[in-house]
Design a protein around this nucleic acid. Structure first.
Lengths: 216, 216, 216, 216
DNA sequence: AATGAATGAGGGTTCATTCAT
DNA sequence: TATGAATGAACCCTCATTCAT
């Protein structure tokens, strides 16, 4: 946990350091990240670094926690808007906010997210928590609800695996589909995203094959 | 690329080094892997290390190439058996061999596989190639074929994303489902795996919802 | 020499700092003592430290001077009581006050005392003075007197060495003898101490062996 | 304990390092000794230093052990020559060899010897052993013997304290006496030393005062 | 071909000291 | 006067790499 001195810094300086650290960890991995590079790039002295953090571990945990908070607050705020929709409508909302969140992440943040589950030899219980996908919690809740109302009639584990992977697939799809045009353009227009989501929601509903007039 | 001296070693010694290196990279990442630990654990001298490899990069590429070859040869051999099945039968075979391959990997090999796509600052064109999922090539071919025969009536990119993620999801599902019993047990009995695969194939065919008597 | 600001502090705060410094030097030696630890333990800020002292050297000299003053004032006050005793009676008084002084010291003060004569690379003339055993001055005076009156008939240097080591030996003896019972108990009862002193005074008078017609 | 690589060095290099280390610890104390200075002065690289020792602690223990071995082997070899002398003759021999040993020490070695008993925060059991004066063991044995034969009629603890301090006093006396002339000269002529020893032996026998014609 | 000691650049961390508030 | 953040020199130690044997 960063020391008080870090939180006392003015926002600009603090965010510069966080940005630099994020990039450092994303580019070199947890074990390859160097204090030297971080202090050089963020324009602080080595001495200051150690007045802000106990070491690179500390900084890493901070970066990851930031990411975690960001995610939880983002998804949390979207969740409040769910209201009285049916199951698949709720998922549509979830996927939309998931995709929007994912898009809000920088390349470096995405890299860190992917890195987390495979970091070994890291003795921080805090990180153990962060390793879990935040949305798992939301999804599990929603799925259980949908099963109890009969909206989903499927094996609980199966439903969970399929649904919790859908956000990622939607994003993969969007990236793939729009390789040529600037990907940012795609995200800026929400209808593009909604279209993609509906494609996957239909899958969840009916499957890939066009049968008996479904999926027309 | 390892030097000739490395390939001249007797198999046992060579594989010891490879095993140690695999574990080193899996545990500490590309940037955190140390020559010292590798030579200590594999019982060779530092001098010898540099007679086998130009450095850790060299060793890393070798390890990853081994993994790639393993995958390609495994899937390749399964592919030959496909014959004249229909589209979904072919996929059933692909998934089965994918799951079997995945299960054949050690923890360390799995970690390396996951690590590959997020390694930056690595100036090896060889690795760029390895980063691609090997099965993509197979899948893309199969999907194009199925689209041209009309067996799949869906957006090509959509089909690709959905199908190429299915193997992973099957494995996730198997792990999740069998948390309690030893996971090894599950893989040993092929019928367990086939059952899981059929679940996902049904999804691809019909979706999650029970409609008109489907999915009872 | 501490700055005026230090002497302006209230007694309690000043003595806290002195106590902490004493312990720091006793535990880590002159070269190993750290400003950081001192300010942390005494609850003052780093900035304040440098407003009180020019650095650790300054503080060290101050601590040692305190110790020196303590010794001189203690022995000085005892000396006044000597009056018109004969030579050995005077020594008895000297030893008694020496032992009492020694006992009045804390463990840390004793350590500092022992440390002083072996500190090198210390460019303070003040300390050079402190390195000398304070009692040397008193003893040399007394011995010269006793030699001139004929009370001691021995080589001056020999007498000096033997006598100036006697205090230490008395303390060693007391510690050794009373290993089992709490050593504090011993010092509290002055008769214990006097008994020990007389043992050593007898040595000075007659030697170790108890024989009629001495030592054949 | 130094690593094998250190003992594999040629004698000259090894002794250079030991000499430098001795001086470093003598001049700056245990906590103030720096690797940097040691490697600079002994002309080895930092890397090499850490191939010889695990750190400065390791080196310190080695230096002290060397000193201990030196002392024990020296005194041990002298002890063998004691033969069938009487008590005080034996002590004469002991003191002589003690003085000769002490004289054989360099200034730095003497400083280290004095430093040992006051080093704190040192978690080496080995050093705890070294802190004990080696001669204590020899003296205790001799004294017990003399008490049982009646050659000494005194309190055991008293005898021990007095006798075990005599070597030091003899040396103090020699230094004091010969301040003016080069002290080395004094030690070179054994008769000077024997004379001093007899002075102290007489004290042990008869005390300082001249009585009934003794000590004339 | 095998070894492992030697090396110095560089990484992590601490420290004494300064200085703006 | 009191404070404590800022700083960079210097410290301890590791590492990749070389090279003589």
């Amino acid at each position: 946990m960063p020391k008080e001195t870090f939180y006392n810094l003015d926002k600009e300086k603090r965010e510069k350091i966080e940005r630099v650290a994020l990039s450092e960890f994303a580019n070199f991995g947890f074990h390859g990240a160097k204090v030297n590079r971080v202090v050089d790039k963020s324009g602080i002295s080595k001495g200051s670094f150690y007045q802000y953090f106990t070491g690179m571990d500390d900084l890493f945990v901070h970066i990851v926690e930031n990411l975690g908070k960001k995610k939880i607050s983002f998804i949390g705020s979207e969740l409040k808007l769910l209201g009285e929709k049916d199951f698949f409508e709720k998922f549509e909302s979830m996927f939309l906010s998931g995709v929007k969140f994912y898009y809000s992440l920088s390349e470096d943040e995405i890299t860190i997210s992917k890195m987390l589950p495979i970091i070994k030899n890291l003795c921080s219980e805090k990180l153990e928590v962060m390793k879990k996908e935040a949305n798992q919690i939301f999804f599990e809740h929603l799925i259980d609800e949908a099963i109890s109302t009969g909206e989903i009639q499927a094996d609980r584990d199966f439903a969970f695996v399929v649904i919790s992977n859908t956000s990622k697939q939607i994003i993969q799809y969007l990236r793939r589909k729009n390789k040529v045009m600037g990907i940012e353009k795609v995200f800026e227009n929400e209808s593009n995203v909604k279209e993609a989501i509906s494609l996957f929601l239909d899958l969840l509903k009916m499957g890939l094959t066009k049968k008996e007039g479904k999926n027309e």
